[in-house]
Design a protein around this nucleic acid. Sequence first.
DNA 1: CGTACGTTTGATCTTTCTCAATAATGGTGG
DNA 2: CCACCATTATTGAGAAAGATCAAACGTACG
Lengths: 240, 240
Amino acid sequence: MSDDDRIAILDLPHRVRKLDAGSYLVREGSLPGVCGVLVDGYAYRQKMTGDGSRQILAVCIPGDAVDLQNIFLDISDHAVQMLTRGTVADIPREPLQQLVLTRPQIGRAVIQLTLVEASILREWVVNVGRRDARERIAHVLCEFAVRLEVRGLTSYDGFELPMTQEQLADATGLTSVHVNRVLKGLEADGLISRRRRHIHFPDWRALQDVGDFSRAYLHLPGGGDGAVLPLREASRHERP
Amino acid sequence: MSDDDRIAILDLPHRVRKLDAGSYLVREGSLPGVCGVLVDGYAYRQKMTGDGSRQILAVCIPGDAVDLQNIFLDISDHAVQMLTRGTVADIPREPLQQLVLTRPQIGRAVIQLTLVEASILREWVVNVGRRDARERIAHVLCEFAVRLEVRGLTSYDGFELPMTQEQLADATGLTSVHVNRVLKGLEADGLISRRRRHIHFPDWRALQDVGDFSRAYLHLPGGGDGAVLPLREASRHERP
DNA sequence: CGTACGTTTGATCTTTCTCAATAATGGTGG
DNA sequence: CCACCATTATTGAGAAAGATCAAACGTACG
């Protein structure tokens, strides 16, 4: 992308908002006039079924665009809700559309973002459709860790999982009770260690194996399957 | 889209191929140089897990573009395989990319196609993650019927389901045995009727209720939730 | 006409859910 | 700073949906 393109993006009008945990960025059925970008904090996409149960479709981390869908489609087919308190920069639809449609390199970048999101969603289907509870949880933890790592959001001793076990259940198609038991099982087997919501991976390789995790579907630059961008060494070893 | 844009699309170089059932359009891990458009026949997207089970992610029907992903991403993260014998028109990557990036209206259209696919995928996650077997099957049948209907591919007495119960199982995260029992249950309750793979809906409204199906997520032109584009009357009534 | 594939059925076994109760934790107002 | 409250986490017992295993039955097709 050219400097010119970058400047055009930074020049986009926008409004920054602070949001509490639980507040909605987008409601299902609404027609948002802006595209939000998560500056700080975490959010999740969700859909409800007719009988009131919830399925979490994706977790948004700082730096993610929250409504790329809604720039080009009218009615939002799902809701986006803050997982934690945080900050969002809202960019109006029209000028962003203009940029995407008239600047080839920006268009390419936005399309790629959209496609990577779709790829993550496909893996999410596989996770929920064809893996057992233990694999599902391990997989979600791996995915989350790698995505955080790539953005530089992990610390030397793991990361803070920004969700309750109930939300983890809604992400994996399980119940919170079962999630709790599986987490305890993973911990008992030395695959994770926990202090409150803080998660640490004593044996990153083994956890990936349990979760049937391969980072290929994240389409990270540099490609490869773990060789190029492994979790940093420091986070792979137990602190005594 | 302008006539000019339409002509540009039709002028795109392409090669038409006939394919047998089971042949691959795209393999996971490959770098396809073309974007296939299904002219005739059905295909499905799939991913395998480490232990060899398969998850079907989407069914492609005639008129669908099969590798929109692969125009802008390099390594394919999933496979696409023919469900039946059929015909595909392959369009080379480069000229298609050019068109999408330099012609705003074509760009918009392709982005919208991509986003609708993502929306369908989100509903697929909900289906597999949060609905029971009966709901899942009913939902898949509804979705398929509506998508066929919109393309004018259903007949007055239902449609031909182009997949085995095993494939239906892989689409819904169930086993083929259980799919069989659920299908029989739906039939016993008068929600569907079957002759071989031919499916007919004696009570379309009831089936939608069972499957918790609402067409909103398909983002069909005309919006609405069934009022605008209902299944045609003829297909809603039993033939004695 | 036989073979391969798909469907159907039964019996049994697991995983996961449900319901229910208890314990921990963090935030809040006094 | 402390007591209290609302969440969240944890645990147990029993129930249920769906998986697994195994076999028989059709049906299309070479």
